[in-house]
């Protein structure tokens, strides 16, 4: 685990804050005067995980960099819902160029700041999973390889949501998207394709790589804070459920993110210089089914007929993660 658990206060470290916790032990999000890097009035759907993830991450980065941050955003929901011309929800210096070039633009901003001797201003690149693992992947790999001084954050909602839920390289097997319909003998997205970018980032042996979840705020904040302590290329991959694309209730966004980690499907870990150094143990283990059944994109696994073969396959993937990332905490 990245965070030191709080001494017992009813809710320990699990909730956002607690009146009993001293100010220096509180999360950024519990602060009544937090930045709200992404402010109200944005046009994200009800219960948007990406809006939440971006505010969590950027507020923390702002705190770590004493508000000296420039964010570079790829095209995608986050960009579109926050900046319908001429309105902006950003309370942070913010720049958007194209769908596929955010890492390159971020590299450029970092280079310019370096040239101007303003290394006190830190750069955050950010985008959805499509922008990151697919179209921007080459630019991102280059940014990693050159070890440019950028923290890149991917808000992974597991498909191209902004254009209507098309499959991306981060879409999980069996999930229904607009381009992987739940029809035929192998409904939904295929098994054995796609990629898990955190491991690819680790292969670049950059200073810091981590995964995080909007269901574990303190862990997320600790990771962003830690990432900001490093110079060079850093990568954080945050799972952000999307009620619209996943076919889930808007009130279940955090619950689903929690079930993703508690089932083992989405492992939480961090790596320094390419080596995994910690993973967050599962606290209340659940079967993948608990996670799947709340989401319309998997409904074809349960009706009209239950598809045990596929459910078991997904369970095996979770089990493999538990072993690989030591998620039961018996390291």
């Amino acid at each position: 685990m990245t965070t030191t658990p709080l001494k017992f206060y009813q809710i320990g470290s699990f909730a956002v804050g607690n009146r009993l916790v001293t100010a220096d032990e509180r999360s950024t999000q519990s602060d009544a005067d937090r930045t709200n890097a992404l402010t109200s009035g944005h046009r994200a759907c009800q219960g948007c995980g990406e809006a939440l993830g971006a505010r969590y991450a950027l507020d923390t980065a702002m705190r770590a960099a004493k508000d000296q941050i420039i964010a570079v955003n790829a095209t995608g929901c986050l960009e579109v819902f926050s900046t319908p011309y001429p309105e902006s929800s950003w309370r942070i210096a913010w720049l958007h160029s194209l769908f596929g070039n955010a890492p390159a633009v971020a590299s450029g901003v970092a280079a310019a700041l370096k040239a101007k001797g303003r290394t006190d201003i830190r750069v955050v690149g950010q985008g959805g999973d499509g922008a990151t693992v697919d179209i921007g992947f080459g630019a991102l790999s280059g940014m990693f390889e050159r070890n440019d001084d950028v923290l890149y954050i991917c808000y992974d909602n597991e498909a191209y949501m902004n254009t209507g839920v098309q499959r991306s390289g981060a879409t999980p097997p069996a999930a229904r998207t607009a381009t992987t319909q739940a029809v035929g003998s192998a409904p939904g997205n295929v098994f054995g394709q796609g990629k898990f970018l955190p491991r690819i980032a680790m292969a670049h042996e950059i200073p810091y790589v981590a995964t995080a979840s909007i269901a574990d705020l303190r862990d997320l904040e600790a990771k962003v804070t830690k990432a900001m302590e490093y110079r060079g290329a850093r990568y954080i991959h945050i799972l952000v459920p999307c009620p619209l694309g996943w076919g889930s209730a808007s009130c279940d966004t955090i619950k689903i993110a929690r079930l993703a980690t508690q089932s083992g499907l989405f492992p939480l870990f961090e790596a320094v210089n390419g080596e995994m150094i910690t993973s967050t143990p599962i606290r209340k283990k659940v079967d993948v089914e608990e996670y799947l059944k709340l989401q319309g994109r998997y409904s074809h696994l349960f009706s009209p007929k239950r598809n045990d073969e596929v459910i078991n396959h997904l369970q095996r993937m979770a089990d493999k993660n538990i072993e690989r990332y030591n998620l039961m905490g018996d390291m």
Binding site: V16, G17, R19, S30, A32, T39, A51, L217
Partner: peptide
């Protein structure tokens, strides 16, 4: 309510005031 700040933290629209 026991002031755990959860509602304040989890609102994607910052629509809760502490």
């Amino acid at each position: 309510c026991f002031e755990c700040d959860n509602c304040f933290g989890v609102c994607p629209d910052n629509a809760i005031k502490k």
